[in-house]
């Protein structure tokens, strides 16, 4: 291949360009850094990897939380039915259906985002996020169970399956991240006191894993 042809081939790489929307969005985000967004900054960019995982995950959790609040208010019928904004039963049913759809979509999104959370640069913060996700899902499940009787047939079971998937993924990811953190700590030099703490943490962790396996075995049999 002639040098000119080769250079022409290299120049085809000029066609690689970032997405314009991303360029504008990132510029705005970077230049506004430090302008009072610190309070929630760890939540929205906990791993300094804004594009990858956290936004969809947090957005999913927030949508889910919003829908739960709506359903919970819907369940308080005796008091709220008196109010004009919830008196139209038909509109209420339609909204309920839409909300259930949103919950299913949010659960699927959260589940997908958990898959990507493994890529986090900061495993200890990722571990904290799995805890937040699980706690939100638990709260949601409690609300759904409270309005179980008013839900269409099969929908309740399908939502519970969605929650179970989120729990399972959070647990598995949590275990994986914790093991990673323990192994990373083993690679660095620690004071004697910290070494004792680390050994204790590892023993406790192993004990929990054995307990979980034991419980799982007896629940299944």
């Amino acid at each position: 291949m002639e040098e000119r042809q080769l250079i022409k081939k290299i120049k085809t790489l000029k066609q690689i360009k970032p997405n314009k929307d991303w360029v504008l969005f990132t510029k705005k985000e970077i230049l506004e850094e430090g302008k009072g967004e610190q309070v929630m900054s760890w939540l929205f960019t906990p791993f300094n990897r804004p594009a990858l995982v956290v936004r969809p995950l947090i957005a999913g959790v927030l949508i889910l939380a919003g829908v739960f609040v709506y359903l919970y208010l819907g369940a308080l019928t005796p008091q709220l039915a008196q109010l004009p904004f919830v008196s139209d039963k038909r509109a209420e049913t339609e909204m309920m259906k839409a909300s259930l759809g949103e919950i299913q979509v949010s659960l699927a999104e959260i589940s997908l985002s958990l898959n990507n959370l493994k890529n986090s640069r900061n495993p200890s913060q990722a571990l904290a996020v799995t805890g937040v996700v699980k706690a939100t899902a638990k709260g949601g499940e409690r609300v759904i169970s409270g309005v179980k009787d008013s839900l269409p047939k099969g929908v309740y079971a399908s939502l519970i399956d969605g929650f179970d998937e989120v729990y399972e993924k959070s647990d598995n990811l949590g275990e994986e991240l914790l093991e990673f953190c323990i192994n990373s700590l083993k690679q660095i030099s620690l004071s004697e006191e910290d070494q004792v703490r680390l050994r204790k943490a590892e023993e406790d962790y192993n004990e929990i894993i054995i307990m979980n396996l034991y419980n799982k075995y007896f629940n299944e049999n």
Partner: peptide, 19 residues
């Protein structure tokens, strides 16, 4: 972005590192 993209395996990684 292009410099980074040529050394990683996905758009998301290139976007994150560029930012």
């Amino acid at each position: 972005y292009r410099f980074v993209f040529l050394k990683v395996s996905s758009q998301e990684e290139a976007q994150d590192l560029t930012s």
